[in-house]
């Protein structure tokens, strides 16, 4: 048993950064590493290392909806989907050039963002596009997929470039 009326909190030099005193505004720091599971989407990320974009196709024969961005179950009929390899060539469905962005991506600005459409596929795929100036982009422009050699296991392991002869 301890009953010590002289107990004293240790004094340190760990102060607080203050921005303003009235009202009192202080800096409060926060960071965290997540243990993020890609779960049923895992195969998509693994396949990028084999230079393959894996979408999904509804297993229900009466449905057969094909998704460019994979999902484990079909939004049209609720059935399970199976992995379905997409072509490496597509077209720009819509585009933008971001001059600002979230803090995480601000150092990468400006960058082009595109929605990609693939022949014979019912839905779209969002990606970065490089190798073209803003004024070169247009809807319907043929583009093709390229893949990072050193994977980050991020959807940016696949990106698109203009589909023109090298």
């Amino acid at each position: 048993m301890t009953l010590n009326p002289n107990a004293k909190m240790e004094e340190t030099q760990k102060g607080t950064e203050v921005y303003n005193v009235d009202p009192l505004i202080v800096k409060s720091h926060y960071e965290i590493d997540y243990i993020h599971s890609y779960a049923q989407d895992s195969e998509f990320f693994r396949a990028l290392g084999k230079k393959k974009i894996m979408g999904s196709k509804c297993k229900n024969k009466d449905c057969g909806y094909v998704y460019a961005t994979p999902r484990g179950h079909c939004m049209m009929c609720g059935s399970e989907t199976e992995w379905h390899e997409l072509p490496n060539h597509g077209k720009i469905h819509a585009f933008t050039t971001c001059y600002f962005g979230s803090e995480e991506f601000l150092p990468e600005t400006p960058f082009h963002l595109v929605m990609v459409e693939f022949e014979g596929v019912n839905s779209l795929f969002m990606a970065r596009l490089i190798g073209a100036d803003e004024e070169d982009l247009h809807i319907g422009m043929p583009i093709r997929a390229k893949f990072r050699r050193n994977l980050r296991f991020s959807p940016t392991d696949v990106y698109f470039v203009p589909d023109v002869p090298k």
């Binding site: 971001c98 962005g101 991020s154 940016t156």
Partner: peptide
């Protein structure tokens, strides 16, 4: 991870 920006 691709865009991360609603205005985009």
């Amino acid at each position: 991870p691709v865009g991360g920006f609603y205005t985009g």
